[in-house]
Design a protein around this nucleic acid. Structure first.
Lengths: 335, 335
DNA sequence: GTTAGCACTTGGGCATGTTGAGTGCTAAGT
DNA sequence: ACTTAGCACTCAACATGCCCAAGTGCTAAC
């Protein structure tokens, strides 16, 4: 049996199954695709594919459906990236318009991606490592509570309330503010851990403890606060595309609500900004996603965008959409 | 037939149905509740209840289930508020601990409420009308782009990128910042619309246009930005509590994703902070929620907290949980 | 290596029968 | 004027049996 045809058969099976949601048999296959051979030959090929664990039969006399492994091969070696339609391009383009507010852009991006793919779209807040410190503000909320605000030149604002331990005076805060601002303005966020200690060290002894606490606050804002948040949209698609429920949505919704889970999931995936990464079914580390696939890619300086949907999804189109959106996102945010 | 018993029968039906998820018949009713009469009598009563549109039979020889109208009567006149369990009280109490960061608190609140009720919990960002302006910051991101930051004494931070139209100098921004700050620091957010114009008027003519733009930005931050956002948690409960799917979750998820819909829904409900408001099934203005109920109440100075679940829910317990959470929230946020 | 043909398996659809929960009604009891 | 026992009736849910179509695997011929 010829190797190319075997792959061709697998491709046909995947495509038909994704389209029809029903196990596909040998006869239907030769009808819909003009492979130059008869159904009997296909049957032989399918037997081989089944032996190799690429497809499986739900019961004796039904057609075959792709396994996770089958999808994997399909994605890796067979599928061609589908070009986007003109309408889709236009939709993505319109993202370029409007205000440059990061939150706004992400919000619209995730919405767009979910509409484009009919799946749940997920986007991680962009990494701000390369962003520069633009402004620092300390605001006294209560005698012992200070609001620390860190503003980046990208327009992203981080905030955090910290407990100072003892009473804080407005004057002390003013002084520290100008000290910090003078030392770290226009430095990269990523460098804060190295710069901050020296600022603290230079403070008058009686303010050193407070300065230390504030520095910690700033530092935590620089790395954790934003990057560890995600935004999502399109959860309703889970219910829509699964009218007959091959994918039980309960566990999936749980996973989506646990930002920690999603973040791990995303960061475990490669982040080659040119190619998208696909994680299929049980390849996912999280059990609730055993029947789901994640298609994601990096954008900007390492954050992720992607979608989550049933294993039975149109990978070529989805991958194209994710990739295109990631590109535009990189361009807009100047990653 | 005695009026009190009729109500008693309705209550028994509602309680049993909520518990068992199955139509309840006359015989099962007399067995589980010691109403001092026979099943035949109950049957008569049920016929009356059906005539009045309070209960309905899914098909000829099945038990009855409550209608929206039945639930309504149950909620309004029959049900007793259930006290919370000790564990529940403890869980709510633990909300008091931890940092006073508004976002943090809301996040935890909504999580807690969804666990308490096993429903989808929703909370609206608190109204900041009575909050005072604590700080104002203008940050130049690009030659024509200014980031406007408004910080309240509650620790809430509003941000927005605005387009200045023409190039802006750092000096001009500094000047305007101190002008604005001097005029509006410690004034109520709600008063900004009245105060801001005079600040603009007092600016030097060449800066007036920029000042106007900035003032607009500040004002929009003071009212819209925060109050019109909602936070939710527990969407997975939709799938869990509906294994047999009397409630098709697709439309509900759609509604939940549309913040606008949820906001209208919440604000259309009464906001008596002592009592909770319930909107049952088709009473909801939104079609997708025809099989869902919303239990909500106000907290602080007018924002809402609540839950959304299937019409068939345990109203007394749910209402108790919502009310208790709203009280604590009011207390913490000092509404 | 491919194909036609064929026997075999099996889930799904359908028609039919049975069961049991539940009703509504009537007539008798208090 | 209520309440109740009794009974005939209805109907979803379940079960049973049957047939059919789709699909397979195998074999023998090309």
């Amino acid at each position: 049996m010829s190797e190319p045809r075997k792959l061709e058969v697998l491709r046909a099976i995947v495509e038909d199954y994704v389209h029809s949601r029903e196990p596909v048999g040998s006869k239907a296959l030769v009808e819909r695709h003009h492979l130059g051979v008869s159904s009997a030959t296909i049957r032989n090929d399918m037997a081989v594919l089944e032996e190799e664990g690429l497809i499986a039969a739900p019961h004796t006399s039904a057609g075959r459906i792709p396994t996770d492994k089958g999808y994997r091969l399909f994605v890796d070696r067979i599928s061609q990236v589908k070009p986007l339609s003109a309408a889709e391009r236009r939709a993505i383009h319109s993202l370029l318009e409007g205000p440059d507010d990061v939150d706004d852009i992400l919000e619209r991006t995730v919405r767009l991606l979910s509409q484009l793919t009919n799946q749940v779209a997920v986007v991680q807040y962009p990494h701000s490592n390369r962003a520069l410190v633009r402004h620092v503000e300390f605001v006294l909320l209560a005698p012992k509570q200070v609001l620390v605000v860190l503003i980046a030149d990208t327009g992203s604002v981080g905030q955090k309330v910290i407990d100072a331990g003892s009473d804080v005076s407005d004057e002390a805060l003013m002084l520290l503010r100008s000290r910090f601002l003078g030392s770290i303005a226009a430095t990269q966020m990523a460098l804060l851990p190295q710069v901050l200690p020296s600022v603290v060290a230079l403070c008058p002894p009686e303010l050193r403890s407070l300065a230390q606490t504030l520095a910690q606050g700033l530092q935590s804002l620089s790395d954790t606060s934003r990057e560890e948040r995600i935004l999502m949209a399109g959860t309703a698609n889970l219910a829509r595309s699964n009218v007959d429920f091959p994918l039980s949505i309960g566990p999936v919704l749980e996973a989506l609500e646990e930002q920690v889970v999603m973040l791990r999931l995303l960061s475990d995936m490669g982040d080659d900004p040119r190619g998208v990464t696909v994680s299929i079914g049980r390849e996912n580390p999280y059990d609730g996603l055993a029947e789901a696939s994640v298609v994601a890619t990096g954008y900007g300086s390492g954050a992720k965008v992607g979608i989550l949907g049933p294993t039975r999804m149109d990978y070529p189109t989805t991958m194209a959409a994710v990739r295109a959106v990631a590109r535009y996102l990189s361009r807009i945010l100047g990653g």
